[in-house]
Simulated assay, not measured.
Amino acid sequence: MSDAFDLPSYLDECRAAVNAALDAVLAMPEAGQPGADDPGRLREAMRYAVLQGGKRMRPVLTIAACQAAGGDTAHALPAACALEMIHAYSLVHDDLPAMDNDLERRGKPTVHVEFGHANAILVGDALLTDAFEVLARGTEGVPRANIADAVTILARCAGINGMVGGQALDLIAGQDIADLETLERVHALKTGGLYAAAGALGGLSSPTAAPEAATQLERYGLAFGIAFQHADDVLDDDQPSLRAEALARVDQLTAECRTIAEGFGEAGKALVAIADWVQARAKRAASGDLRDTV
Rank of each mutant, 00 (worst) to 15 (best):
G225L: 03
A197S: 12
P207C: 09
E245K: 10
P207Y: 06
A227P: 12
V250S: 12
A209R: 13
H230I: 14
A214M: 04
D170V: 02
G199V: 02
I177R: 13
Y195P: 06
A231H: 12
P207L: 08
S206M: 09
G199I: 02
A214T: 01
G203L: 11
L204P: 06
L183M: 13
Y195T: 13
D251N: 07
V250R: 13
H187P: 01
D236C: 04
D170T: 02
D232W: 02
P207W: 05
V186K: 14
R243C: 01
L183H: 03
A200H: 07
A244D: 15
D237G: 05
T208F: 03
G221R: 09
E181I: 00
P207Q: 12
A209S: 14
G221V: 01
L204Q: 09
A200L: 04
F228K: 15
A197Q: 12
D251I: 01
P240E: 08
E218Y: 00
A248D: 14
D233G: 08
A188W: 01
A231D: 10
D232M: 07
E245I: 01
I172D: 15
H230M: 13
H187R: 09
A173V: 03
A188L: 11
A188Q: 14
E245V: 00
A173M: 13
L201Q: 11
L217C: 05
L242Y: 03
L189D: 03
L204G: 11
E245F: 01
A188F: 01
E181W: 00
A248P: 00
L194K: 13
P207F: 04
R249Q: 14
Y195R: 10
H187K: 07
Q239G: 05
H187M: 06
A173H: 08
A173F: 04
A188H: 11
P240I: 05
P211H: 08
I177F: 04
E184I: 00
S205R: 08
A231Q: 13
E218W: 00
A196H: 02
V234F: 09
L201A: 11
I177C: 06
A248Y: 00
D176M: 06
G221W: 02
L194H: 11
R243D: 01
H230N: 11
A178S: 14
G174H: 07
L222A: 13
D233F: 03
D170E: 14
A209V: 02
D176G: 08
A231R: 15
E218C: 08
G199C: 05
P211D: 15
V250I: 13
T191V: 06
T215D: 15
Y195S: 11
D236F: 01
A231C: 11
G225Q: 09
A214E: 06
Y195M: 14
E212A: 15
Q229S: 10
Q175K: 14
A197D: 14
I226Y: 10
D232A: 08
T191F: 05
G193H: 04
E212P: 02
Y195A: 06
G193Q: 05
V234H: 12
Y220I: 08
V250G: 10
R249M: 10
A244H: 11
T182C: 03
A227N: 12
G221A: 08
Q252V: 01
